[in-house]
C-alpha cells in the first residue's frame, strides 16, 4: 500500500507546489511555514485538487478521507447525533468518548470550536481508511484532547496517515518526516534518522539535539527517556 507523488506540481498564480516521493504505511508528519503549500499538498493527496502536471498514484488504497483545518466545513447534521451518524459512526460511542454525551441533541454549531473539532475527529477516526489526511488536526484542541488524539493516531492499525500541523508541544510518535518550504516538498526520511534534519522541530526537541541527545522519536517522552538513558551510560 502506498501513495506515490510522481513529479507532481500544482500552480496557482505565482505559487507552485512540487512534490516527488512515496507515502508508505504508517504515520507521516508534514511541517512548514504559513503559506508554504501544506494545505495544497493535503488537497492533492486527497484528490480534491487536480495537479497541473505529474500525478498522485494510489496503490492498494481504496478508502480515502481528509480532515479540513476548519471543523465547521464538515458539518452536515442538524444535531450532534446526526452529525456523528453522518460519518457512519455510532453517535453514543463517539459522544461518550469525547465527553459530549449531554450534548447529543444540540446543534453542532452550539458547540465551542474545540468541542466541534473533537466531535469531528472522533467521528472520523471511528471509521477505517487506507489513507487518512489530517490538516491541522491539533488546532483548537486543549492539551487533554491533543494527547487523546495522539494515542488514537498511534493506535490506528495499518493504513497511511499524513498529518499537516504547526503543533509544537504535543505530537504523536511518527514514522516519517516531511517539510514543505517555498512550495517544495522535501522527504526527510524515516524517524529517528530524519530527526536531526528537521528544521521545524519543536523547541524541546531542538534543545535536546543541541545537548547531544539522540531520541528514538519526536515526543517529549522520547526526550526524557533519551536523557535518562544518556545518564545511565555516563
Amino acid at each position: 500500500m502506498q501513495v506515490a507523488c510522481e513529479s507532481l506540481t500544482f500552480t496557482r498564480g505565482e505559487f507552485t507546489l512540487s512534490c516527488t516521493g512515496i507515502f508508505g504505511p504508517g504515520l507521516h508528519l508534514v511541517t512548514g511555514r504559513v503559506g508554504s503549500g501544506k494545505t495544497t499538498l493535503a488537497l492533492l493527496l486527497a484528490d480534491l485538487l487536480h495537479p497541473s502536471s505529474g500525478r498522485v498514484c494510489l496503490e492498494g488504497v481504496e478508502r480515502v478521507t481528509l480532515s479540513f483545518q476548519n471543523p465547521e466545513y464538515h458539518v452536515t447534521g442538524a444535531t450532534v447525533r446526526a452529525e456523528a451518524a453522518s460519518y457512519g459512526a455510532d453517535p453514543d460511542a463517539v459522544a461518550d468518548a469525547v465527553g459530549l454525551s449531554g450534548r447529543l441533541d444540540d446543534d453542532p454549531f452550539a458547540l465551542s470550536r474545540g468541542e466541534l473539532k473533537r466531535l469531528h475527529l472522533a467521528s472520523l477516526l471511528s471509521m477505517s481508511y487506507d489513507l487518512l489526511v489530517l490538516d491541522e488536526p491539533f488546532s483548537s484542541l486543549d492539551c487533554v484532547q491533543k494527547h487523546r488524539l495522539c494515542r488514537a493516531l498511534e493506535e490506528r492499525g495499518g493504513g497511511i496517515t499524513v498529518i499537516f500541523t504547526h503543533e509544537r508541544q504535543i505530537l504523536p510518535a511518527v514514522d516519517h518526516l516531511w517539510e514543505v518550504e517555498g512550495g517544495t516538498v522535501r522527504d526527510l526520511g524515516a524517524v529517528p534518522g530524519a530527526i536531526p534534519h528537521w528544521r521545524h522541530a519543536p523547541p524541546y526537541l531542538k534543545q535536546a539535539l543541541a545537548r547531544g541527545l539522540a531520541p528514538h522519536n519526536i515526543t517529549l517522552k522520547d526526550i526524557i527517556e533519551a536523557e535518562a538513558a544518556c545518564k545511565t551510560h555516563d
Binding site: V34, Q69, E136, S139, S140, H166, H200, P202, P203
Partner: peptide, 11 residues
C-alpha cells in the same frame, strides 16, 4: 481568540 493555532513558530 486562539488565532495562533494556525501559525508556525517563526511566524
Amino acid at each position: 481568540d486562539e488565532f495562533d493555532s494556525h501559525l508556525d513558530a517563526e511566524t
